[in-house]
């Protein structure tokens, strides 16, 4: 049954027949060159494939663009609100009412004490007489006030806190407590509640935008993952053939990763156009509004780095989505 052929394992002693297979070795530099060439070729074929199905590609890109533009617009809006509110906070003043029977020496003493506090940037003293004059001029009750026996208004210090901004509200609270402890102080008025509310609202919005951004990024990942999954299914035959002639996993993966990367990048480019469009659209109205309030406020745009960041994020999300899909589905396609 076995015939005359010996089954011995003297494999190594056999003289191999000379053949043209010795040139299996390919120079490293050629390998590197063709690796780069394959990247380039894959990029171009991927682009060509995407353009050959323009409607499908456009739909996917627009879905990705909207999902990326929404959180970007909201993030930008929030950034502007924060800039605006920190401007308000810096104009916050603490009004310190001086006890009525405080003499001029006591007032000088209080001014010194106020200025000694570390968080105080500047103080302005308004004597009770000055306050009365101001009140006469502004209120319109000027003549009625002449019937008063003595000046009912207290002397006042306007205190400008050194550090301002929503984040330092807690420190402002400490400052108020410190001023309240001074001997000659009668009462303190600080209009901080609305600032606290604004800061809290900004904080809540920030969290909402973040949550929505995460949800939409997951959505983009799923959209790209599904697109790649369909692409893998439709190229099943090709994958099997290239695997049979010795393609590595990386070689098989490459076109799909490029598809994901390009979809994400194109989505981000369209998203940045939507972002800039809405920015210029709203920007003009904001400028008019700010002018009406005599404010120097200017709507801050995303900036060059912001746009680049958005593109990078889009490309990265696209690549990640493609990678996840490829990892899930490519292993399952083996030649059988």
């Amino acid at each position: 049954m076995m015939g005359a052929r010996p089954m011995a394992s003297n494999q190594n002693t056999r003289e191999p027949v000379t053949r043209g297979a010795s040139d299996q070795k390919i120079r490293l530099v050629d390998r590197w060159r063709s690796y780069k060439a394959h990247h380039r070729a894959t990029l171009f074929t991927t682009l060509k494939k995407m353009l050959s199905e323009p409607i499908q590609t456009l739909l996917t890109v627009v879905v990705i663009a909207i999902a990326l533009a929404l959180p970007s617009v909201m993030f930008l809006a929030l950034h502007n609100v924060q800039t605006l509110s920190s401007g308000f906070a810096s104009s916050a003043q603490i009004t310190v009412f001086v006890k009525k029977d405080t003499g001029s020496q006591g007032i000088t003493q209080l001014e010194k004490e106020l200025k000694a506090l570390p968080e105080v940037a500047a103080t302005t003293y308004i004597s009770s007489e000055q306050a009365l004059e101001e009140f006469k001029a502004l209120s319109g009750f000027g003549s009625a006030l002449q019937y008063l026996d003595d000046n009912p208004l207290p002397a006042v210090f306007l205190v400008q806190p050194a550090r301002s901004g929503a984040a330092e509200l807690a420190q402002a609270q400490e400052l108020v407590t410190a001023i309240g402890a001074l001997a000659a102080v009668d009462d303190i008025q600080v209009d901080m509640l609305w600032m606290q509310r604004l800061a809290t609202i900004t904080d809540v919005s920030k969290k909402l935008v973040l949550a929505m951004g995460v949800a939409l990024v997951i959505g983009v990942l799923l959209v790209i993952g599904n697109t790649i999954r369909l692409a893998i299914q439709s190229r099943r035959e090709e994958i099997i053939v290239v695997k049979l002639v010795g393609a590595t996993d990386a070689y098989v993966r490459r076109p799909f990763l490029y598809t994901g990367l390009l979809l994400g990048l194109f989505g981000a480019i369209v998203a940045s156009m939507l972002l800039l469009g809405s920015f210029y659209w709203v920007g003009h109205s904001i400028a008019v509004l700010a002018n009406l309030y005599q404010s120097q406020f200017q709507l801050a745009g995303p900036g060059f780095s912001g746009i680049l960041g958005l593109w990078g994020a889009g490309a990265l999300i696209g690549l990640t989505g493609a990678w996840v899909a490829v990892m899930q589905h490519l292993r399952a396609i083996e030649p059988k």
């Binding site: 050629d30 090709e238 053939v241 049979l244 002639v245 010795g246 070689y251």
Partner: peptide, 22 residues
């Protein structure tokens, strides 16, 4: 197991392409 989306030349070149021949 030939690929119908490319030419005869490209089909035959596939193993060389994958192996990284210049």
């Amino acid at each position: 197991q030939l690929l119908s989306d490319r030419t005869v030349f490209e089909n035959v070149a596939l193993p060389l392409h994958i192996a990284g021949y210049p």
